[in-house]
Structures are given as C-alpha cells and as structure tokens.
Design a protein around this nucleic acid. Sequence first.
DNA 1: GCGCGGTGCTAATTCCGATTAGCCAAAACG
DNA 2: CGTTTTGGCTAATCGGAATTAGCACCGCGC
Lengths: 365, 365
Amino acid sequence: MPQDSNEKQRERGSGLGKVSGKQRVTMQDIARIAGCSQSTVSFVLNANTSVKISEPTRRRVLEVARELGYRPASLPGLNRNRGRSEGTIAFVIDKISTSPEGIVALDGVRQIARNLGAIVLVAETDGDPMLEPRTLEMFIEMGVQAIIYACIFTREVTLPNALAETTIPVVLLNCYTPDGQRPAVVPGEIAGGHRATAALLAVGHRRVGTITGEAFMEATRDRLQGYRNALATADIPFAPELVVEGDWSASAGYRGTQQLMAFDQPPTAIFCQNDRMAVGCYEALKEMGKRIPEDISVVGYDDEEIARHLSPPLTSLILPSRAMGRWSVERIMQGDTESDDAGALVKLECELVERDSIAPPPEAG
Amino acid sequence: MPQDSNEKQRERGSGLGKVSGKQRVTMQDIARIAGCSQSTVSFVLNANTSVKISEPTRRRVLEVARELGYRPASLPGLNRNRGRSEGTIAFVIDKISTSPEGIVALDGVRQIARNLGAIVLVAETDGDPMLEPRTLEMFIEMGVQAIIYACIFTREVTLPNALAETTIPVVLLNCYTPDGQRPAVVPGEIAGGHRATAALLAVGHRRVGTITGEAFMEATRDRLQGYRNALATADIPFAPELVVEGDWSASAGYRGTQQLMAFDQPPTAIFCQNDRMAVGCYEALKEMGKRIPEDISVVGYDDEEIARHLSPPLTSLILPSRAMGRWSVERIMQGDTESDDAGALVKLECELVERDSIAPPPEAG
DNA sequence: GCGCGGTGCTAATTCCGATTAGCCAAAACG
DNA sequence: CGTTTTGGCTAATCGGAATTAGCACCGCGC
C-alpha cells in the first residue's frame, strides 16, 4: 500500500532540519550519502584494520559522519529513551595536581555546569601520548555532550585526532590551534604584562627591570611583549640589560634580582613574571637591606596564595582561570544555537590585584 | 544434535565462577533463570509502563539481574571487543578544590591506575543530594570498572543507594559505613594523635596542651583519643584544662594558645591538631616573647605546605592521602580475585615529619 | 456457557551496528 | 597471456535489546 509507505517516509523525513530531529543518525544514513555500505561505515568509524578501506572512501565516510553529527547511537535500542551520558561535560587536562590554575579553571567550569544541571567528568592525561587519545576516544564514545580540552601551560597545540574528527562541541582552554579549528580561550598575557608594567610606570618609575620565565614559553614571550609595549606607551626606551631570563623558580628570582641590582643604575622597580620568582626577589632585596616598597617596588604575576602572605603583600595579576572555565561552558552552550565563527581565539583579562609592594620611586618622591 | 547443544552449553557455562567469565550477562540469561522471556526482563529493567508486569515477576527479575550483575551490555554488537569504559575507574568525591588532600589522594589513585593502563574519571559532587546519585548512576550505567567514593573529611557515611546496589567494586576512601558493607580506608588518626603526643613526651615534656578541631568531627575525637592514650602510656594523668577546643582555623590556634599559656603552670608543649592552628599558635607564642622550640615545643598535623615555611619549620604528621589512593586501587584489583572480607576498615599510618619545633622542655634540660 | 475486558506475559519483529565470508577488479607474477 | 595475489568493498548474518501485537487466562455480568 503506497499510502502507508508514504506515511512512513513522511514520518521519518519530517524531523529534518531543526525540530530536534527525532531520528538518530545511523550508519545506514551515512552509507547512503557516502555511497557505500553500512559495513564500510562501521569499519571506517571503528578504525577496524581487519578490512582495508581506501583513503578516499575513508575520508568520504568520515566527512559525512561529521556533517550528520553521527554518534554511535550508543545503545542498541536504548537510543531514544535513556540519555546515558547526556548532560555531561568532559574536562580533559594534561596536569591538574601540580598547580592551582587547573583546579580553579575546573571550578569555573563546574560552577556554570552546575547551574545547567550538567555533570562534569574530569580526566588527567599527563599529556601521555597513549593515554590522552584513549581518554578522549572514551569520552566521545561514551557520548559526552562536550569536551573541554585544557592545558596547564598556555600553548599552541595540534588538535588530537579524536577531537579533530568528532562532531561534538570542543573548547580549548588555555591552549589553541594555529588555524583556529575550535573555539579557544587563553589569558591575555600581553595585556597583563602591559598592565603590570604600567602599574609601576604610573607611580613614577622609569627604570623597571623584569625577570622572565623560560624563553621558550609563550607566557614569557607575551608578558615580555606587554612589558615592552607599556614602556613604549610611556615613551621609555627599552633597555635590554633590564631584562633577565629566569625559569619561574624562586632561586631564579633571587639571582635575577642580584643581577639587576648590581648595575650602576639599578632599577627602581622589578616586574617578576610570576609570584614564585617574586619570592626570591623579596629575599634578595631584603638581604641587600632594601625596603619594599619604599626603596624598590615589585610586581608579581599569577596571584598565587603566597602573594598574600609575603611581607609586604605582593601586588600581582590574577590569571583568569576561573573565568576561562566559565567561558568554556558558556561557549559550549551558545554553540548549540549559533556555531558560526567556531575558531575565535578569545583572550580574557588578567586583573591587577593591588597590595602593598608598589610605591613611587625614592627620588621621584 | 544434542552434542552440539551440549557443547554450546559447556562453552557458556565454563566461565562460571572465576575465570573472568567471557560471556556478558544478557537479558536472555536473566530471563532463563528468572523463568520468563527476554521481553519481560526488558520491560522490568526499563520500568516500561506500557506493559504490565506482576509484582512477583518484577521482583524476581530484579533479583536475578542484581545477582548476575547485569549491565546493559551497553553497545549493540560491541559487547565483545570494545570495552567502552572498561579499564576506567571512577573517583567520586564531595569536594576536591578546597583542600589538597583530595587531590593528593587522587594522585595516588592515578599513579597505580596508570601502571595498569586504567583511565581515572573524576567527578566532584559537592555532596549534592541530587547531583551525587545522578553521577554515581551515570558511572555505573557507563560501565566503569570500579568506583572510589571519597570524602574530604573523614566520616561515617550511609552508602548511596546506587553504590549499595551495584555489583561493581566500590571502595570508600576517607569514609566508611558502620556495617562495613564495602572496603574502606581512613587515616589512622588515633595512632597519629598518639604519635604526635608521644614525640613531645619522648623528649621530656610532662605538661602537654592540645588545641582540637571542632568537637563533632571524627578527626577531632580520634586525635584527642590518641593524645589521651599517649599520656596514659606515659603514666601522665589527663588534665582536662589542657585541652582547648578550636575550629581548625589559625585564629582558633591563636586564642587557644593564649588560653593555655595563661595558666599558672602553662604547658611546655602544645599539640595543635592541624597546621593552620599551629600558625596561630606560633603567632601567639611569638607575641608573648616565647621562643620555639627552646621555651615551648609545638606539633602540628596534616603537614600542609605551610608547615615547611614556618619559622622554625613545624614538626607535623602526614595524612596518608596518597597512600589511601593507592590502597584503593590495589584493593580494587585484588578484589577481582579474592573478595571475601569485603568490609575491612583499613587505617593507614600518619607518619611523623620531624622538623625543628620540638626540643626538651626548659626545666628538664 | 458465553462474550468481554483486563491482567500478565511472550513470540515475533525490528533496530543498530559488528563481523564473517567472499566477490570483483587491478596489480603482480610466471 | 593466464594465474595468483591483494586491495577495497559488500551481502548476509548475528547478537543484544526494545517494541508491537497478541495470546491465554481469569473473573464477571447476563
């Protein structure tokens, strides 16, 4: 009876477009569009090596699968009723235990997720080349709603295959891809370096030293860039000798400070590009009998717990970890509706926390 | 052919008992044992109301399903090869961000899990009465291999339903049930309090004050118990006035110390039941012009980061968080083979870290 | 004693996706 | 030039679970 068949078709087809498209995307659908059999789709999607699939076919299948937003329908027939891992967001990070930032970012994620009733699943991969893909694949198979891929150090990453190929929303936190394949958030380090330096310039300092992190790290480059920008803005020529390379450690701060203070014209302020180095800086200055901030001003970066407990309390910049976490979730949610400019790299501001380690330079009164 | 059928049965049945029983438990299996059809099992397990099932049948099915440890086999054909969430351990904790212990415990878990190639999934529930069960159920449905249920404060818990009912291994970390339904690890706080006090008694102190946490907390009770035991062991009568109730905060340590030192016969040593209170204790003592450890000895507890940075460095006790994490995973693994004494409550030792805050009492020379 | 409806269940079907076996054509080989 | 190999793919089938349709039985009113 043709009418029956028509009716069935209509029923099936009606969900096309938006309307929460009743029908799940199945391997059959992909096969039809990609012009191959369901089996082939199965092989491709499972990367089953027991059967060879040509590269073009493989790609076509992958392409279509992505376009249709295929997901293993997860369960056999259960697809429709039980939403296994619906409402869950995966937070995958390389290292979470070593520094507080990861945890703070996670906290931001959880705050927002909580409001939405979403469960946040966390996995730490140590950047392990075996563990990480396995973890990501597992999350995807599991059917999480979105993945937040975070790095403990701000850096460029090549998107893991699993993430490059998946159709579920992915947000990069504290890392980004060169081609902006996925939305990403990082701290505005250049602006931060600028702000830290400007805070010193604002009260009259003209010779501002800085102790950087390791040269190869982006945070170092960017914070230094901000430092230079601030000097330029204030029409102060950049003096290379006032830049000392450190390695984020307290002892590097100690040595760097000694080096800076040994000049005939030592700086009247030091911008330590993280708080741990500021600790070493404090120590060196106190050994020299210098008072902070009367004799010399200091600014840190990262606003770690210790900044509050130094004497005097250290002016520092807050890494927007929590805000990045929040942004990620918000981005995921809005992505549901408007997912056009997928590849925007967003930078969030590093706020300045003014404490008592800055004062006008001695001469400037 | 009866032989064939026999063979098949043998094949199926062979996995009974240990031997990792190849075959997954299917609805068919449940149906056979419960004496009904697969459909019926499906209806019962999905609480599908479109078909009526009598209460006795329903219960029988549920019972059998529980006994066999039924799990939705998850995927359609995937059952055999791909272990979706096989090799994953769920770590569910109430609060992880607020204090380092949770993270350290997690780290211990991950260390061991890593060696086994297992992925650790973390979820923080805030102890939320809605979120927690949802999270646990999700993990169970997801098919994780085991669940570690952790609390940030040592305490007795009533096992969430999801955990009480599930057949997958569950370990309690830093909490336990009164009836020992599941294996559990907690720190040996009584022994710890004993050890802290004994360290003071060993160098000659006879009047040892202590500042406790909040009275309702188990850690407080146990550490105090250890303190009393140590006194008793050294044949020193317990003096109630030397016990001051605090609340774990630095200011409680400060006030408690003032209170203790106001006696005609002030103590020559103070056991602060956590490091934060020891910070307040140090402060109070310094204000009074007392030297540590020459005039008065101090012991902390928890060995937080700050203990190392006090002046003089504080002798403290390490919470065995990492060890508890490790123990949990090991327990899970051995549970595969020998799962008899399920309900053992294991206490792990709190190690004493000797630094420079203990010396013999002034008079005792 | 006969339809009638409800309860409790099952047989049969269906769905998604994995897997096996094997087809076909092009490449390599003799 | 015929034969074997092998790369690339599909048809057919299978398995777990949901679902539809409907069967058997029981009590009930007439």
